[in-house]
Design a protein around this nucleic acid. Sequence first.
DNA 1: CTACAATCGGAACCGTGATTCCGTTTCGTC
DNA 2: GACGAAACGGAATCACGGTTCCGATTGTAG
Lengths: 226, 226
Amino acid sequence: MTAGDTAVLPRRADARRNREQVLAAAEAVFSERGVKAPIEEVARRAGVGVGTVCRHYPTKQALVDAVVHRLLEPLIERARPALDATDPGEAFRNFVFALSDVQARHVALAEQMAYEIDGAMEKGPLRAELRTIANELLVRAQAAGSIRADIGAADVSMLFSGAAHATSLVGEHQEELRHRYVTVILDGLRPMGASALPGHPMDYDEMQRVKSVGRARGGNTSGARR
Amino acid sequence: MTAGDTAVLPRRADARRNREQVLAAAEAVFSERGVKAPIEEVARRAGVGVGTVCRHYPTKQALVDAVVHRLLEPLIERARPALDATDPGEAFRNFVFALSDVQARHVALAEQMAYEIDGAMEKGPLRAELRTIANELLVRAQAAGSIRADIGAADVSMLFSGAAHATSLVGEHQEELRHRYVTVILDGLRPMGASALPGHPMDYDEMQRVKSVGRARGGNTSGARR
DNA sequence: CTACAATCGGAACCGTGATTCCGTTTCGTC
DNA sequence: GACGAAACGGAATCACGGTTCCGATTGTAG
């Protein structure tokens, strides 16, 4: 089930227990204080020493990856059945809400990973599957006329991850706010009376390409230097 | 005019020149590599030593603040006349595009500042003015029936800063993408056939309050720990 | 119960980056 | 052109956080 802990599992029972506690602690700490939270904090929360954390996850990045993996899994479980839904528009909207919930819990993670180390971008079969599903849901919703046609799956990702990111900065009402903004964006994605958009629909492959350009030299390649 | 360099200006000509060069370099470096870029990089780009940078801006945060200040100023210049525009809806839309351009150039900065050190949140009279203008533009657009009524100025900020953030992760087509997403969100903000939103319109004062709650203890106060 | 290997805890080590210090250089005045 | 103060550069200092190491501890097979 947990295909992510590809590393050989510890032999001893207490080790396995600790490994799990560390992962849980990391998830909590990272969503509260962001990925920048020191490992020592994770260790303390897990009730173990730093040495233990570092033995189980030899590098901080490895720990981050593991946490992300753990967040993605349930999302996919929830999303897969949506492919058989009767109303594609409804299915898409539900998925988007679910996605934004997860993203909101680990914006800091996703971000770091997305444009810094990249990390699980290609590695994760989970990520690939998530994308496939998201794409499928979008296309069906578009075919059903529930979503404007001039939008790609990557556009959707960005729009909603942006909303998740924005709300992650506040302390209270996060959930409510996020849903508020997701709703607004969904309204903007309806086909009726949609304004003309500059550019063209962006799919995941192109986003990938376009991101790597950015990573090569900083981040802002468009526009001239001042 | 430059009310931000509140620190006593250097007496000597070359010092003033350097100060300016440092600021320009910082703006460039920060938008390219993010606020995390080392001071030494800024110094190199400005063609001065680190010591010089640190003398002019005694702390890195001070440097960041100064850069933000410099970005806000022209935006306000552009926004003020919009208050007299004939079409409030159009004025609002224009302002939003302008705002998103600036935000996109310093997401990293704004972010850092907004939820970490907070910094200029109350200090900056510029920020206050920007808010006032933004709020006014929104209210007028709503009164004119161009924008849905169940939205507050802080909602608008968050939505668009989210869009800016999302696009900041890519390397190419930033400008185009950002406008793409801003357009989608603006479509979502139209009154016609708007979906019901959870929660209530959020203004800047409440956002302020709600953010400080978050800062007190990490960031995720909503929902129980796992 | 014992012995051994797997684990653990946390101190020591290392690299990175902000800040400080001080001998040297440059500006502005007389 | 000479002098004193202002500013400079960059090496030294300091703080912080990830990673490594090793003596102490603990689970488990026999």
